[in-house]
Amino acid sequence: MTFKAIINGKTLKGETTTEAVDAATAEKVFKQYFNDNGLDGEWTYDDATKTFTVTE
């Protein structure tokens, strides 16, 4: 399945996608990506659209 992340950061904005077997796996991938890029913020997840949003 394809999962999307919308990034609303102070220094980084945009979208990225990942292929994962479930939402928990996708969340781990996205959180690692955000940690690697120095992002920290509020997380939400919309199961209907398979979209994570992080707002810094």
Rank of each mutant, 00 (worst) to 15 (best):
V29M: 10
I7Y: 15
G38P: 03
D47T: 06
T51H: 01
D40G: 10
T11H: 12
D46L: 03
A26P: 00
G41Q: 05
G14Y: 15
T25W: 06
T25R: 06
K4A: 04
G9T: 15
E27Y: 15
L12Q: 10
D36A: 13
T11S: 11
K31H: 05
V54A: 03
Y33F: 12
M1E: 09
I7W: 15
E19K: 13
T53R: 05
G38Y: 06
A5M: 15
G9R: 06
K28Q: 11
T16N: 04
A24W: 10
Q32M: 10
K28P: 01
M1A: 08
E42P: 05
I7C: 12
V54L: 13
T16D: 02
L12F: 14
T44R: 07
V21C: 10
A5W: 10
E27P: 00
A26K: 01
E42Y: 10
F34S: 04
N37L: 15
A5F: 15
M1G: 07
E15Q: 10
T2H: 07
T2M: 13
A5N: 03
A26S: 02
Y33I: 08
K13W: 13
T25H: 11
E56Y: 12
Q32D: 06
K4P: 03
G14N: 07
W43S: 01
N35S: 14
G9C: 14
G41V: 12
K10W: 12
T17F: 13
A26D: 02
T49E: 04
T25Q: 12
A24N: 07
T11D: 08
W43M: 07
A24V: 10
N37T: 10
L39Y: 12
T51A: 03
N35A: 14
N37E: 08
T11E: 09
T18H: 04
F30K: 00
E27D: 00
E42H: 10
K13F: 12
T49P: 00
A26Q: 01
I6Q: 05
K10D: 06
K13P: 04
A23N: 03
N35Q: 14
T44N: 08
E56L: 15
N8Q: 12
E27V: 07
E42N: 08
L39Q: 05
Y33A: 04
D47I: 08
E42R: 07
K10V: 13
Y33D: 01
T18F: 15
T18N: 02
G14F: 15
A5T: 04
K50C: 06
E15F: 14
G41I: 09
A48E: 11
A20W: 03
D46V: 03
I7Q: 02
A20S: 05
V29G: 02
D22E: 03
T51M: 03
F52K: 00
E42S: 10
N37F: 15
T11L: 11
K4E: 02
D46P: 01
D46W: 02
K31G: 02
W43H: 01
A24H: 08
D40C: 13
W43N: 00
F3G: 02
D22H: 02
Q32Y: 05
T25Y: 06
T49G: 03
N35I: 13
E15M: 13
M1N: 09
Y45W: 02
T55Q: 07
E15G: 05
D36C: 12
A5H: 02
E19S: 10
T2Y: 08
K4L: 07
N8H: 11
Y33L: 08
N8D: 08
V54C: 05
I7V: 09
A20E: 03
D47A: 12
V54I: 14
V29W: 15
G14R: 12
F3R: 03
G14L: 15
L12K: 08
T44L: 08
T44F: 10
G38V: 06
T44Y: 10
V54K: 02
K31M: 08
G9H: 10
A48T: 11
I6A: 03
G14W: 15
N35H: 14
E19A: 07
T53E: 04
E15P: 05
K28D: 04
K28V: 07
T55S: 08
T55M: 07
E15V: 13
F52P: 00
T18R: 05
T2Q: 10
E19W: 15
T17D: 04
Q32G: 05
Q32E: 09
Y33Q: 05
W43P: 00
A5L: 15
D40F: 14
V21Q: 11
T16G: 04
V29C: 13
D40H: 13
G38A: 07
A5S: 03
Y45E: 00
F30V: 01
E19H: 13
T16E: 05
V54D: 00
E42A: 09
T2K: 12
I7L: 10
A48N: 12
T11C: 15
F30Q: 00
W43I: 07
K13A: 08
K31F: 04
D36H: 08
V21W: 11
K13Y: 13
F34P: 01
N8W: 13
D22K: 01
T44I: 08
D36M: 12
V54R: 04
K10F: 12
D22V: 01
A24Q: 10
M1T: 13
A20I: 03
L12P: 05
Y45G: 01
F34M: 13
A5P: 02
N8C: 14
W43F: 08
D22C: 03
T53K: 04
G9L: 15
D40W: 14
A26N: 00
F3Y: 12
A5E: 03
E19V: 15
E19Y: 14
N8V: 14
V21Y: 07
G38F: 11
T2L: 13
F52E: 00
A48V: 10
D40M: 13
L39P: 03
D22A: 01
V54S: 02
G9S: 11
K28H: 08
T11K: 10
N8T: 08
Y45N: 00
T51N: 00
K10L: 14
L12A: 06
A48L: 11
F3A: 02
A48W: 05
K28L: 11
T2G: 04
F52C: 00
T17W: 14
A20Y: 03
W43Y: 05
K50V: 02
T53L: 07
V21S: 11
M1R: 08
D22G: 01
A26V: 01
K4M: 07
T44Q: 08
K13H: 12
I6M: 06
T18A: 07
T51D: 00
T11Q: 10
V21M: 11
F30L: 07
K50D: 00
L39N: 04
K31C: 05
M1I: 14
E27I: 09
A23M: 09
A23Y: 09
E56S: 08
K28W: 09
T18E: 02
L39R: 04
T18M: 10
F3L: 02
Y33N: 04
F34C: 15
G38N: 10
A26R: 02
K31V: 06
L12H: 12
D22Q: 01
M1D: 09
K4W: 11
N37A: 13
T25F: 05
T16L: 15
E42T: 13
I7A: 08
Y33R: 06
G38I: 08
L12D: 06
D22N: 07
T49Q: 04
F34V: 13
K4T: 13
Y45M: 01
L39M: 11
M1L: 12
E19R: 14
K28A: 12
D47Y: 06
E42W: 10
G38K: 07
E27Q: 12
T25E: 12
V21E: 09
G14K: 12
Y45R: 00
L39I: 14
W43K: 01
T25V: 06
V54N: 01
A5I: 14
N35L: 14
V54M: 10
D22M: 01
K31N: 03
D40Y: 15
N8S: 08
T51L: 03
W43Q: 01
E56N: 06
T2R: 11
L39A: 05
G14P: 05
K10H: 12
I6D: 02
G14A: 12
D36W: 12
T55A: 05
A48Q: 10
T17C: 14
K13E: 06
D46G: 00
